[in-house]
């Protein structure tokens, strides 16, 4: 598969979304709503669940399945209140010492009048800062599209994992093509240029683990679950300071 095939696979209709992974991997998922400042952004779901016998905080960008649901979830493009809702849940996780797991699947943070008025940039920036210092383990899993700052705002994590058909990019291939060649239809060429596949990102040290999707959805979820449990157990031997130092150094050294 070339880079553009990966982009198409990541966006494919019928691909499982965050809610599907959450229901399959965890039990007792209890959704908690709202950012306590403006509203409840349905593009992001968040709550508490059990991973085996461990309480964890789960946050996911949700695109929805049916057309009606997709519209209500704004096609998985969050507004600032979505990122603030996520941060609120992360702060609760910190208070109650629960690990955080984020599922990322977004074309990008929404760009529109309301999003700008309520400080899209500031909301993302705050998440980057706060996640870097969050005193509990954080793992982010890319299950589909990883669109720029809107994806990064949920992935300043100890480890970033990607499904083999997920992508993560600084700009959409369409955006890149329209800037580079003034022609947004050259997405295929742009996808290659951006080096956005899981293998590319693994070689840059952006992602630590790639999951094969070949065996199907249920075995994949089982594998993710096992890796989550193993990783959190491994993290138990670290002090909070070591955990935070490792997280800082992970990002500090990329591209250096």
């Amino acid at each position: 598969m070339n880079a553009y095939d990966k982009v198409r696979a990541a966006r494919a209709k019928g691909r499982p979304t965050s809610i599907d992974y959450i229901n399959q991997i965890f039990t007792k998922f209890t959704e908690l709503h709202g950012d306590r400042r403006f509203s409840d952004d349905k593009a992001i779901i968040a709550g508490i669940a059990k991973l085996d016998d461990m309480s964890v905080t789960v946050i996911g960008i949700e695109k929805g399945h049916s057309t009606k649901e997709k519209v209500s979830r704004n096609f998985g493009s969050a507004h600032p209140e979505g990122y603030r809702k996520a941060l609120r849940q992360m702060k609760l996780a910190e208070k109650f010492k629960r690990p955080v797991i984020c599922f990322v699947d977004t074309a990008g943070a929404f760009c529109g009048i309301g999003a700008e008025e309520r400080g899209q940039g500031q909301a993302i920036a705050e998440n980057l800062m706060e996640m870097m210092a969050l005193r509990v383990p954080v793992i982010s899993i890319f299950i589909g599209e990883g669109g720029s700052g809107g994806a990064l705002a949920l992935s300043v994590a100890d480890e970033v994992w990607m499904l083999e058909n997920s992508v993560y990019s600084v700009i959409s291939p369409e955006g890149c093509a329209s800037i580079l060649w003034k022609d947004s239809s050259k997405t295929k060429e742009a996808s290659e240029c951006l080096k956005l596949t899981a293998e590319d990102l693994y070689s840059f040290g952006v992602t630590e683990r790639i999951f094969s999707e070949k065996a199907g959805f249920e075995p994949l979820c089982e594998e993710i679950k096992n890796q989550l449990i193993a990783t959190f157990h491994r993290n138990n031997s670290l002090t909070t300071e070591e955990l935070l130092d490792n997280r800082y150094r992970k990002f500090r050294k990329i591209g250096g």
């Binding site: 990064l152 600084v170 951006l194 080096k195 956005l196």
Partner: peptide
């Protein structure tokens, strides 16, 4: 590419 995003 992604290396720029990581600078954020």
């Amino acid at each position: 590419g992604i290396l720029s995003l990581m600078q954020m």
